[in-house]
Design a protein around this nucleic acid. Structure first.
Lengths: 259, 259
DNA sequence: TCCGACCTCACCATTTCTGGTGAAGGGGAA
DNA sequence: TTCCCCTTCACCAGAAATGGTGAGGTCGGA
């Protein structure tokens, strides 16, 4: 695979702005660390280092891939992380829920914190040492991969507004490059053991995903329902799916079909 | 919605590098045009202007959203575009197929051009005026949205390698900001009439998407199969899905559940 | 040239899903 | 407090999907 020198160039653009308290040397070190990272542990180190570079209380990179696998590199306390996982707080965390439907970065203030679960969650987070201010960048990769890069700080509104204004584009770039590295480390572009589908198999699953039943699909494809079944079954077999629903869901999450 | 001054800042980073033949004024104009774009037509204008700025033969921005809606802003000839659509060339175009599984930008040379359909396609593209060199940036948005930003040029390998090396990070940033604008213009963060699912409905659809049948899901959820059916049906109703397969597929493509 | 992969069709018993209706208690929001 | 939504359960007939197996033809790559 041809590796383009994206990181180097882009971090140079980051540092050439001479905007103040970010140490260029530190940032270059960080960039070095990131582009050389060969394991997820090194990403953790990167995140921790970044905290010092930006003078920020907490940073979080959290990725969820298509198969439900999760990975996080963060600076929160172990207590809080365990609690979060144990309670499945990603389900009510307005940051996660809000960003999942967005494509642009957002300040936590702009999220919807109404509703009792959200407020309870906020209270507990604060008691665990989280700051009142935050900024998150949603990032997406292939096959439904989703990641969130957030910074969190105890600060007043004015100072925080200034920080986000100045650093937003830094954070966006870092978020994207970090996600690239995490994805490359985790599995690379090779998507696992799922074999490609034949054109007819794709047609069949796509029409099925669109809500047609077998009779409808067979008619749309101008083939007999028996033939259609062969496609569905061979697609199922290729993907190791147990039934039609599973096959369509797998094809969708692996990017084998597009609806 | 709080709008962050991302575009301005980032295009400044683009222009502050003083790398040669890109006219700063032109680029600033382009940036202005992009951030003020209120319609998809203006994105077309932006793409056409970019061609002059970079001295590039062709640029293409092509987006496919979760509902199958497509939009493109490009500089190819109408003849080629019509031909491409008519023949459904996106199915065999190695650029589209290759990038869909990737998350990092790629030079067209690094793609897989073996196979008769690919070679035939390449021949026809060349006869329609496309250059031999190309570089594409895959971009992803919420709910499975996918877009491709490509540049295409008639050039020799050395000069092209130099161009991509120098301009890769520009192109990546432009690609991302263009995608943001296209998404905001097209519909914004509001995702349409699909109502949110209740926790139990999500559980049910998720377990179904994972390959369980109703009996298995009911057991996993520790509820009767009758109850489970209520969840599936109410979820179907909310999303206007005609059957279980459709419901799971819709929930997946709209980001209502994650598998 | 041969093999493998793809496309096409058929049969049939069994399992599973669907459609529609009714009903109860709990909890949050206005 | 009232209302709406969520969660839980039941019944039943008819429609649809499934699991195997067999078999013909085409086409591109080794």
């Amino acid at each position: 695979m041809t590796r383009l020198p994206l990181r180097r160039v882009s971090f140079q653009t980051l540092t050439c702005r001479q905007r103040g308290y970010v140490s260029l040397n530190k940032l270059v070190d960080m960039q070095e660390a990131l582009s050389n990272a060969k394991s997820l542990e090194e990403l953790q180190t990167f995140v921790e280092g970044l905290r010092g570079v930006y003078g920020i209380d907490n940073l979080v990179y959290h990725s969820v891939n298509a198969s439900g696998g999760q990975y996080a590199a963060l600076t929160y306390s172990d207590t809080w992380v365990e609690r979060y996982i144990e309670k499945g707080y990603e389900r009510i965390d307005p940051v996660v829920q809000g960003c999942y439907k967005r494509f642009t970065p957002i300040d936590w203030k702009a999220l919807d914190w109404s509703g009792k679960p959200s407020r309870d969650f906020l209270g507990e987070a604060a008691s665990q040492g989280l700051g009142n201010q935050g900024f998150s960048v949603p990032i997406r990769g292939p096959s439904g991969q989703f990641a969130l890069f957030s910074v969190n700080q105890k600060d007043n509104d004015d100072r925080w507004a200034q920080f986000t204004e100045e650093r937003a584009s830094d954070l966006i770039l870092i978020a994207h490059y970090m996600n690239e590295r995490a994805l490359e480390i985790e599995g690379g572009p090779s998507q696992g053991p799922v074999r490609a589908l034949s054109p007819r198999e794709k047609d069949a699953l796509t029409l099925l995903a669109l809500g047609n039943n077998r009779a409808g699909v067979a008619e749309a494809l101008q083939i007999s329902e028996n033939t259609l079944r062969v496609y569905i079954e061979s697609a199922r077999f290729k993907m190791g799916a147990t039934n039609t629903v599973h096959a369509v869901a797998t094809a969708l999450t692996h990017g084998l079909i597009v609806v």
